[in-house]
Design a protein around this nucleic acid. Structure first.
Lengths: 214, 214
DNA sequence: TGATTGGTTCTTGTATACAAAAGAGTTGAC
DNA sequence: GTCAACTCTTTTGTATACAAGAACCAATCA
């Protein structure tokens, strides 16, 4: 991994964690000094982040942190739900028995995490569950695009788990989804995944709270 | 527009036009000399293209043109059809009367282009038609993502128009789609758009021919 | 007193120079 | 004769230096 990529990862983490505020300007020289490198790899890193949409680059002006607001996040979740539904529909027809076992194993680990109340661990296994479905669509392009948006929404999806009882509900939905996939029911899997990801009810308020906290 | 962006545009055009071959290595120094600049803006430009997926950047190895093969193109079209269908479903509920008029106007211009057998003009108006739908989804994120994939598939969608009678068929489909949207029939619009974009029948062979020609 | 214009300073965009790593070719040993 | 290691070349990754454009501040004029 090149130096620029490391810096990009670190800046990304600091933005997502809220350490650098919304709309803040990222000064190249300051970042260069912070990471003990020249401006060149910093610019490279900012270019990478610009591609992911995490920052906004205004020519001759500078780069600014571009945290999406509530409206844009809802838009992104709306698209994410559609991605998941589509992936589920394809996966239902194409999934392998081995992958179904992987889903069950991930759900079992989710169950243990839920019992222990370990949201971090739960989220990791949750990510495995979803990534496995993406990988079973038989469509590599869809897999990459979906994973990309999933990664981008990670901090917000993760915050949903803070909701009381959400981990148990989420796990139950996972079990249901796995069942649909096992039965080859594409429409069922699609609808279950759409509902699983959609921001509705209490999840909406939790999302707002997450945004306001940052 | 900065120098790096201009160079990125030009390289992109040369890749899409097939002037630079699939898998070819893009030499930074050579490009710098070609455009009469130093390696720095060239690297910046390659970074931009890397983000769009048009080139593949292997650390310490170099950058290579990454033209998608038939399999990946079919994957991309499969996702594109889903995007269009989703956009259509949303737009059917949210489209404005003014936008419906824009669709009709674009179709009228498409009709004139079809009569004149002008595939270039047809494609331009066709792009207006689709972009209008994207813009009426009420979801800015979806609009940008869909437009991005549309742009990426542009050369291949365009080549479909070379098919005998395809312009007339495409126009009829446009009329039908506009009708569904006017009636607020989301499911109808979604299916019509999916079928309109999907690669099937003769379109499949035309796509293969386009790939082989490049 | 307010607005506009000029200059100054700060920041980004670009050029050049240097370092490090990967690949290929050659040479030597088994 | 073949394989491996070493060196040399090529190319990328990084640092430094320079140029150009934008924002800000002050001074002057209306």
């Amino acid at each position: 991994m090149t130096r620029a990529e490391q810096i990009a990862r670190d800046i990304e983490a600091r933005i997502i964690s809220g350490e650098v505020a919304q709309g803040a300007r990222l000064d190249e020289s300051a970042l260069a000094e912070r990471y003990g490198v020249s401006r060149t790899p910093v610019r490279e890193a900012l270019g990478l982040l610009n591609a992911t949409g995490l920052i906004r680059h205004e020519p001759r002006r500078g780069v600014f942190v571009r945290q999406p607001g509530a409206a844009e996040l809802l838009e992104m979740f709306e698209v994410m739900a559609e991605y998941e539904a589509f992936a589920g529909r394809l996966a239902a027809a194409r999934i392998t028995p081995a992958a179904l076992d992987v889903l069950d194993a991930a759900n079992d680990r989710c169950a243990r995490a839920a019992e222990a109340g370990d949201a971090d661990l739960y989220y990791i296994e949750n990510a495995v569950f979803h990534a496995t479905i993406y990988g079973q669509t038989g469509n590599g392009f869809l897999e990459r695009e979906t994973q990309r948006l999933h990664d981008r929404l990670r901090p917000y999806r993760r915050s949903q788990l803070q909701l009381r009882g959400r981990m148990a509900d989420s796990l139950a939905e996972h079990r249901s989804i796995a069942q649909y996939l096992r039965q080859g029911d594409g429409a069922g899997a699609a609808e279950a995944l759409r509902a699983h990801v959609a921001v509705q009810g209490d999840k909406f308020h939790m999302l707002l709270r997450t945004i306001n906290a940052a």
